[in-house]
Amino acid sequence: MDTVLDILMAAALFVGLAFNTLGVFGILRFPDVYTRLHADTKATTFGSVFTSLAVLMWLLRQWVGADFDGAVLQQAIHTVVAVVVLAVTNATGGHAIARAVWHLGIRPAHAVCDALAADKAKAEPEAGKKEGEA
């Protein structure tokens, strides 16, 4: 049981570190803000979820190995809360940054379509002008 958990834990740590590294290199190498945001919010969140999964496996190992310890259970629950908070805030924060950048006037470098511009043009033709003036 312990050996299986150890192997799974090492695998989760490796996957998490690999995804975090890929996300960081994406931020360094991608051409414009939107692709960098993509690398940040997707890859880094996914990697952090996996490293936290390794932490949860470690806590499960502690819990199974020793007699019942309330602190281990508490740490596990708080870790789950932290991961949920991280996932939710990264997604919504990335959305807020992307919208703010779009309203600053920066457009995607090699994009084929711009759905937000199309939606704005279709919904209220005057809104684009007002946004530009303000």
Binding site: V24, I27, R36, D40, T45, S48, L86, G93, I97
Partner: peptide
């Protein structure tokens, strides 16, 4: 801002 967000996640 994107880089700061990544640092915070890490």
């Amino acid at each position: 801002v994107v880089a700061l967000d990544a640092v915070n996640t890490l």
